[in-house]
């Protein structure tokens, strides 16, 4: 009836609880204090009493869990499930989302210190990751066939993911590139725009001509490009925009101010 694990932890729990009572009485506890957790009387030295009793209660709680789950004995589990042997744990498909989630949490942490916008970005990333992770978890258990699971997941999520991802990439790219263009000189911005356009076109042509692309090259290229654009955008934002001079500015000349002219 009582499992080995239960006996082990219950014994430890009882020993600790008894020790707590003994410790309480020997360090100034009086009346029924150590027995009633301070309800009727003092418990003596608080730290040691609390620690011993807390650990004792924890051990006894663990003991109750163990007897309930039969020491998590696989044979017992199999018996309850009515099978010969408990099934192996579910096969979990490879996924980008844990890494993206880690970067999201990292962005939140950095944003907490440096800038609210970074924090909010991280928060949004974490929200997206939470949804995607849940969907992946559901799809992994949908059927017993991983290929079918993958197809099912894509059928549900791809119509949402692809437009959302496309929009996010375009928005981030435009935002970051615009920051870079605003931070560089007039001539520089023309050069940057030209180079970026040619790069995007060239890489797209290269990928389009290939029937089979190595996933490492694809992942590396996307990562490199994304990091380059984002880092450029962040640096440009920090640097600030270049000085702009309005084409025509009219001043009342009463204070002797200059009349500006665009360059």
């Amino acid at each position: 009836m009582f499992t080995t694990g239960f006996k082990f932890f219950f014994g430890i729990g009882m020993a600790l609880a008894t020790g707590a009572v003994f410790y309480g009485y020997t360090t100034g506890g009086n009346h029924m204090g150590p027995l009633s957790m301070g309800w009727k009387g003092g418990i003596g030295e608080h730290l040691g009493y609390s620690l011993l009793l807390g650990l004792g209660v924890t051990a006894m709680t663990v003991a109750l869990f163990l007897v309930f789950f039969r020491d998590a004995d696989p044979a017992a589990q199999a018996h309850y499930m009515g099978v010969e042997q408990i099934p192996t744990n579910n096969l979990v498909t490879a996924s980008f989302w844990p890494v993206v989630g880690a970067f999201g949490v990292g962005a939140m942490a950095i944003g907490l210190v440096l800038h609210t916008a970074v924090f909010v970005t991280g928060l949004i990333i974490c929200g997206v990751v939470a949804i995607e992770w849940l969907m992946d978890g559901w799809a992994d258990r949908a059927t017993g066939d991983p290929e079918a699971n993958r197809a099912l997941r894509n059928r549900v999520m791809a119509p949402i993911e692809i437009p959302a991802l496309g929009a996010a990439i375009v928005a981030l790219g435009v935002l970051a590139t615009s920051r870079i263009l605003l931070a560089t000189s007039k001539l520089g911005s023309v050069v940057v725009a030209g180079v970026v356009s040619v790069l995007i076109l060239g890489i797209a042509v290269l990928f389009a001509r290939k029937t089979q692309i190595n996933k490492n090259i694809l992942a590396g290229s996307v990562l490199l490009l994304a990091v380059a654009v984002l880092v450029g955008g962040i640096v440009a934002t920090v640097t600030g925009e270049r000085d702009f001079h309005p084409h025509e500015v009219h001043h009342d000349d009463e204070n002797g101010a200059d009349t500006g002219e665009g360059h």
Binding site: T88, L91, V92, T93, A94, A142, T143, G144, D145, P146, E147, A148, R150, L152
Partner: peptide, 15 residues
């Protein structure tokens, strides 16, 4: 959709 799990090696190869 398949209701019964495929063989372990097939499943592992898939993931």
């Amino acid at each position: 959709m398949t209701d019964s799990p495929p063989a372990a090696d097939t499943a592992l190869a898939a993931i």
